[in-house]
Amino acid sequence: MMKDLTNIILQAMENKSSVSVSLDDISGIFVKPPNIEELKPAYFMYSSQFNIVEDATQMPKFEKAFSVPKEAFEKASNINISTLFASLLRFPKFPQDYKNSTLLNNEVYSIDMGREISNLTDTFNLTFRNVDLNASDPLCYSWDGRGATPNWTNHGCNTSYGNGSVTCACQHLTFFAVLMTPKPQKISSSDLNNLTYITSIGCVPPVLVVTAIFISQKYNKEDIVSNTGQTTSMCWITDPTVHYVVNIGYYSAIFLFTFLTFVVMLRWLWLLRNKRPTITTSGKSSRSSDALTIMGLCCILGLSWGFAFFAYGPMQIPAFYIFTILNSFQGFFMFVYYYKSSKLVGEAEASLEGSSTTTDATVVENPYGKHKTF
């Protein structure tokens, strides 16, 4: 599309040295060097439209200023090209990339000279002034025009700042834009010091334990040998007594607490089910929901780690497999638990709303152990 548009405009220009372009909301300018024997850089500004700037010293006065270096015209003239020109186009409302990046002023610029120009020593410059540098970090990016959506890259473009302005210095021709990157949220120094102090306190006593074990030389490299002779080394507690006290003993206390919590929650669920007789499902569906609920509770409380207790003797290898599989799918089980819990809550609310509209209904028990509503 860009090539077709360029050819149409160049043919319409004939012998003119410059022409303004307006197509829907796209605007731009095409220029031809007046003297091919004495090439000079080209300067432009944009306000409501593009204009050529004859005096380069006036460039700092304009909010949006652009320059095409002499080196770019020289490189283009050395290529077998029928017409030596430079075009600058502005594209507002440009399609967003897959990251939904925010563009400065929601606009993209393209510079074209009819051929691929790259690796310039004297760069193309695009300067934008009156930019709020406190709200976000503007960075210059380019895109080669390939693909359905922009694939922005900062390769070949440098960004510089000064007095509320952003300047893109690019070594090649392509589409250019300034992407606005949100600044990282800052916190006060007092909050940072408090959080650092809390973290130091938490570092969760274990530092003292690890230091004591290391000083007592109970922590060293341990080799794990397979039946094929393959050896894997890992750092671990080499003393069995220390291992049982530090690892097994600590986990046993945690496991006991979570197991008691598990029992309390099961009892709570059982009482909740008995208090809501209007929520009924088929026996098969109810049993599967109960199983998923219990599995989800086990994963949330970390009870699946309890299989580590059975990793001894003939149960060692089976316990390793069960332990690895269950804990690898811990996130999936928690998702299923959350989904089933949300579904049951929705059914309960719908059932309660339905029962509230039939205040005169009486529930009686029939001889077959089921309920009928009259």
Results as ranks from 00 to 15, higher is better:
Gln49Ser: 14
Lys64Gly: 00
Phe94Tyr: 14
Val345Gln: 11
Val31Asn: 05
Ser20Tyr: 11
Tyr197Ile: 03
Met113His: 10
Phe176Thr: 07
Asn80Glu: 13
His155Ala: 06
Leu301Arg: 04
Ser341Tyr: 11
Thr57Gln: 14
Lys93Phe: 04
Met315Asp: 00
Ile52Tyr: 07
Val263Tyr: 13
Pro367Met: 05
Ile215Lys: 11
Gly114Lys: 03
Gly145Gln: 04
Asp239Trp: 10
Cys235Glu: 07
Lys32Ala: 03
Thr83Leu: 08
Thr261Gln: 15
Gln230Tyr: 14
Pro240Gln: 09
Phe310Tyr: 10
Lys16Gly: 00
Tyr161Trp: 08
Glu38His: 13
Cys235Lys: 11
Thr123Asn: 13
Asn327Gly: 01
Gly302Trp: 04
Met2Gly: 00
Ser136Asp: 11
Lys99Gly: 00
Val166Arg: 05
Ser286Asn: 13
Tyr338Met: 12
Arg146Tyr: 05
Lys218Asp: 08
Pro138Arg: 13
Thr123Arg: 12
Pro184Val: 04
Thr211Ala: 08
Asn158Tyr: 03
Ser18Met: 10
Asp97Tyr: 06
Ile198Cys: 00
Thr159Lys: 05
Pro205His: 10
Ser22Tyr: 07
Thr362Asn: 11
Asp55Asn: 15
Phe128Pro: 02
Leu133Tyr: 07
Glu14Asn: 11
Lys370Ile: 02
Gly283Leu: 12
Val336Lys: 09
Gly331Glu: 09
Val68Ala: 12
Leu23Asp: 10
Cys203Phe: 15
Tyr46His: 11
Pro277Trp: 04
Lys70Pro: 05
Ala72Gly: 05
Tyr337Trp: 15
Pro184Asp: 06
Gly346Cys: 10
Cys157Asn: 01
Asp4Trp: 13
Met315Val: 01
Asp290Phe: 09
Asn80Pro: 00
Ser20Gly: 11
